[in-house]
Design a protein around this nucleic acid. Structure first.
Lengths: 196, 196, 196, 196
DNA sequence: TATGAATGAGTCTTCATTCAT
DNA sequence: TATGAATGAAGACTCATTCAT
């Protein structure tokens, strides 16, 4: 019956509730998935009622959208920059380098999106993500190139993404791993550009 | 309204209900995800009541487990075979080739698992999948090798997986694409084996 | 948490649940209005869980629609009959007589609709009701007649409706009242037909 | 999202907020009904926060009460006047005439009350309205008269009320219709008085 | 004269599951 | 080999109201 709350939560931290909701939501979404994370759970962790969430966000989906918008801005800018550059090998390499950095900056969100593709596809961020991805493909992949080279470019992107998630399981120093991943990706892009 | 069933569905296909449930379930799981697919929906498509599903499977999860077991048997055998072979380049290349074929044979299931990782992780098939993946990594990845080469091997696997799903979007003949993907994967494995 | 049910409700009355839901729903809708009647309330009165209601009806609105369809069938038939008759005074008088009877047969439902017009208008039965009403007007009201006479016809209908509800408050024997109401309505129709 | 207020609403109309709340509330109540109109909606239309409404009115119901009191004052006075007059035909006719005018002056409110009877009945204005109605009946209806004539009187009142709402649908000039309605009502009263 | 932030109760609805027949 | 009927738990969301500032 209702959200009971014992009085023990002093007026601590006011004004930052919106941010705290985002933090907890991202944590839980990444951990358990979007559908399995209920607003009740988020609210409980914040020691706040569900209704409070609705004061800050219109819907559950809106929480996710806000995370996406806040955390992928660097990527958005990167893509805009990339679209204006010449399609040279240097540009592509630079894009891959910066993309790798941008990914690291929003790792939990991307992990979430990787692991919840079926869900994401049905949500508003699905469309946003798709557009970004297509732009990126436009920049990196030359539609005139041999199929093998096209595959190499896409594979480079996937290596970066996978790197953030699965390759964590490999033993070794994280920074070493990040560099190795980047190197393989740049390698693939370079091979592709040189025409096999 | 209840599980209403109008009498119009002839006694078609006696005894194959279990199979039909699996077919429809896989279709819907792949299309919408596991959580968003309800047993009601599956039952409705089959023109059967929900309770009928429970005659054939103990739980919703069991339907998924049965799909996994039925469809990934070739992979299971492939891995068993691989574990007995010497860790030579030829073996690795052969594994990649056969793995690619096995993937194609169970594409919808793997698409489902790729797109529902968060969900899969929490289910029984999560553990099964993880074990298989680790075995595969053991076969392909040499823990003594340079990090870049380790990354290349994992990247090869991811290229195959991604190939099934994302690369569909690239223009071109499917068979050409499949070969290109396989080529890139084998290339990566080969480079890795040769030590960068 | 959930709908708790103590075991004390034997397997009494099976098969008639759908009917019982309709009965209780109509009673409560008429008593308190549609919006103020919650499914929880209906379920509690029936000593059943809310989910059971959903086994028999797809939505709350569907319960109302089913009541409307079941209870206004006589009216539907009356209107169909009326549309085929000549627009004579006798026809009109007969319609009014039969309409009065049909109203009595579904009094609680009409009382409900009268008192919840704002709600009804937004629901599916709003449209149904509107259509019936327009047909009835077509039968009774001659668009060529003087405005006063048109008003008399509509007023006759309203007298019948109001009769069911408000006039209950007048003292006197119910049957006497019903006859008086009918007489006034027929009077109005007759005056209208004679051209003032 | 919270009650967000962008700064763009100039200091327009100081001090008339209370009035503006009433206006918007009446508009929405009449359009959608009382229950379906939320304070959030009213506040949003006024570009004010919900809390602001509570500065001016203690509860949602109070808004309605205030509308009732403000808009039905002429009727209140009419009834007081009527109670002091002799129960002559002339008085009754005059009452009907003035009542018709008073109704026109507060049409939206009466439309609201007509269409939300179920709701109104449970609210404070239910009682107020009932008292007024009974007084009016006392003036117009002679309890000694024949039942048919009593019905005629009540029917006259209902004709006026219905006139405001349903008869709008009839084609024709509004003023012509208003006069026709009044004529029919006065006719009914007159017939009733002359003893059927 | 208002706002920002929050609450508690309640809404309709959906789901996986059970069991007697 | 199924169905009809139901349950218990939980879901997202909305509402009127409050109160410190």
């Amino acid at each position: 019956m209702g959200d009971t709350m014992d009085g023990t939560k002093q007026h601590r931290r006011r004004g930052d509730t919106r941010q705290r909701i985002q933090d907890v939501a991202l944590e839980l979404f990444a951990e358990q998935g979007y559908e399995k994370t209920s607003l009740r759970e988020i609210a409980e962790r914040l020691e706040v009622t569900k209704a409070a969430l609705y004061y800050h966000f219109k819907t559950k989906e809106e929480i996710l959208v806000s995370l996406f918008e806040d955390l992928t801005q660097p990527m958005e800018e990167l893509i805009e920059w990339g679209l204006e550059q010449p399609r040279s090998l240097e540009t592509k390499q630079e894009i891959v380098r910066r993309y790798s950095a941008a990914l690291s900056g929003a790792a939990p969100l991307f992990r979430f999106m990787q692991e919840n593709q079926a869900t994401v596809r049905e949500l508003r961020i699905g469309e946003m993500l798709k557009n970004r991805t297509l732009s990126l493909k436009d920049i990196l992949v030359d539609p005139e190139a041999e199929m093998t080279d096209q595959v190499r470019c896409v594979s480079a992107l996937f290596t970066l993404h996978a790197g953030m998630i699965v390759l964590q399981d490999l033993e070794g120093d994280p920074e070493t791993k990040r560099k190795a991943i980047l190197e393989v990706a740049i390698d693939l892009i370079t091979q592709a550009h040189q025409g096999g």
